[in-house]
Amino acid sequence: MSRNAGSDVKAAYLFIAPAIIGFIVFVAYPLVRSFYLALTKYNGLVDPVFIGLGNFRRLFTVDPAFWPALRATAYLVLLYVPLSLVLGLALAMFCNQRFAGVRLVRTLAYLPVVLPAVATITLWKFILDPQVGLLNTVLDRLGLPTSLWLQSPQMSMPSVVLVMLWGVGGTMIIFLAALQSVPTELYEAARVDGAGPWSVFLRITMPLISPIMLLQVILQTTAALQTFNQPKILTNGGPGFSTNVLMLSIYKNGFPNLGQIPQLGYASAQVWVLFVIIIAVIALTAKFSSLWTYSDNTAD
């Protein structure tokens, strides 16, 4: 059967044309342009002025906000990613049991993911208010210690992470799908062999969902590195620099308060630093992934 290769190619390009155009305009162009801007001083009102590595020099040596921003970002990632993976997996395993009402729990757990971020984050800001918020009121009535939450330099980042974790339903759903595609014959066999639940988990469940786990580690880490909405709405970086993650710092430089001139070149330089960090993290994770993920030798 001879296939008309020519019409294949023509059709292919027709089908893929919009995506290609999109790639050039929305990926290639911004990449190149923002790299150029990172080497300039640019306030958006007059043309950019080339200053070479000046932005990067200022970033690493003079800027009082940069290193705290890196610290805050690292803190966020180290708190959030492990917790979201563990909680997501735990919830998924929890919802993978056969109890009446499990569908309801699963739906409710996913509910926060569906709602508009700006709305829910603002709601949480209100809940965490030390004086008029719900959380402290409930804690107080239960006789538990209260906190200043977002206004405490120590608890501000944990509070931000807490709000982010409210959306753990998204992670849960993905792990749930992974869990449910583990062939049940394996569990049967393990049961026959007399393996306990913990052993089953470590030797069967974990290895078989490890590809998804790897994907999740990468996705969650890159997302965490780019967190913006929560710190912006909840604390705007404060108190001090405790929640001033890199994305927020970039935004403040590029889109500062009323009456201040934007520093778009400087912000672009910071964007590139973040970009490099993301690539590095992904590369490292992928490189070491073969150590702990299980593949069943199926081709890519």
Binding site: P64, A65, G240, N257, G259, Q260, I261
Partner: peptide, 21 residues
């Protein structure tokens, strides 16, 4: 009210506010 006033805020956060706290 100067062009570079946005850079003052970060210095204030890093060095002045901790003195008050």
């Amino acid at each position: 009210t100067t062009q570079w006033s946005s850079q003052v805020g970060d210095l204030t956060t890093a060095m002045y506010q901790p003195i008050l706290s």
